[in-house]
Amino acid sequence: MAKIDFTVEDRAEIAQAITRAETRTSGEIVVIVAHASDGYASFTVLWSALIALAVPIPLMVFTDWALDLVYAIQLVTFLLLLPILRLDALRFSLVPPSIKRARAHAKAVDQFLAQNLHTTQGRTGILLFVSMAERFAEVIADEAVFEKVDQEVWDGIVEIFLERIRAGDQTEAFTRAIARCGDVLAEHFPPDGMECDELPNHLIVLDGDATVR
């Protein structure tokens, strides 16, 4: 699972990319990175319980151990698995991809509203949301942008972004995606001479319930 690891220089470069992109458009760009979109604690309990429930079957078939011993082994198995399956690498691998995508999308929508992207003048804000644990990225556009730009355009930007992430070019992935978002906004929403920087240009990093700016 990818980790959030941005140096001061990385953050500065991403912030500069946002500022450069916004000078060419009346739109607003917000970039948010989350370590994970959900803790998925219920899946840790679920898989621990399922494995523990299966433990007695071979013991009862292939041994003549007393039921109280089998029960004790079952309980110990459950208690041992709980902390092991809480490890990030294991916990996130236990969650079906469709659920991870759904949780990450829900988090993106939540952040779109939390960052007031729906209140910008002209309704021309877009959010680039990335959730590292889910390996998920999405561009969400506000009403005016959505009406003029097909979703396929944003999906293409996301695909290029994910390719650069997989190649290990984390900061470049962000700066390229931001520049391309700026290109799209500039095409449909050029500067109108009345721009004010309504939303933050720096990278916003969510770590659990805390926001690190």
Rank of each mutant, 00 (worst) to 15 (best):
F189C: 12
D5Q: 00
M194W: 00
A133P: 06
L203V: 05
L69T: 15
A34I: 02
T63R: 06
D110V: 09
V76E: 11
R91M: 08
E147I: 13
S37N: 02
I178V: 08
S26F: 02
N116P: 07
P56N: 06
A2H: 01
N201G: 15
R213W: 12
A179F: 06
F136I: 07
G122W: 13
P190I: 06
G156S: 06
G182N: 09
E9I: 12
L206G: 02
F92G: 02
D169K: 12
A167S: 10
R103N: 14
R135H: 06
Q115K: 13
L87H: 05
T7L: 03
R123A: 13
F78E: 06
F78T: 01
G122A: 14
E147A: 14
K3N: 01
V130R: 08
D110E: 15
E134F: 01
E9Y: 11
R101G: 15
W47Q: 03
K148H: 08
I29A: 04
L53D: 11
L113I: 10
H202R: 08
Y40G: 03
T7I: 05
G168L: 04
Y71H: 02
G156N: 05
D155G: 00
D150H: 06
A141E: 05
F92Y: 11
M194H: 01
L113G: 03
P83C: 08
F189M: 11
R11E: 08
Y71Q: 07
A34C: 04
F6T: 05
T175W: 02
N116Q: 14
R176F: 03
A144I: 05
I178Y: 03
V130Q: 12
D10R: 05
R11K: 07
A179H: 10
E143K: 15
Q74F: 13
R101S: 15
V149F: 13
F129N: 10
D150G: 01
I51K: 03
Q115N: 13
A104V: 12
R166C: 00
I157V: 08
T23C: 01
L87C: 01
P191V: 03
L81T: 08
I204D: 07
L113T: 07
A72D: 15
I14E: 00
A49E: 04
V70L: 12
V205L: 11
L117P: 04
I126D: 00
D110Q: 15
C196M: 14
E138T: 11
V45T: 09
V31C: 01
I126K: 04
A141K: 09
M132Q: 07
A21F: 12
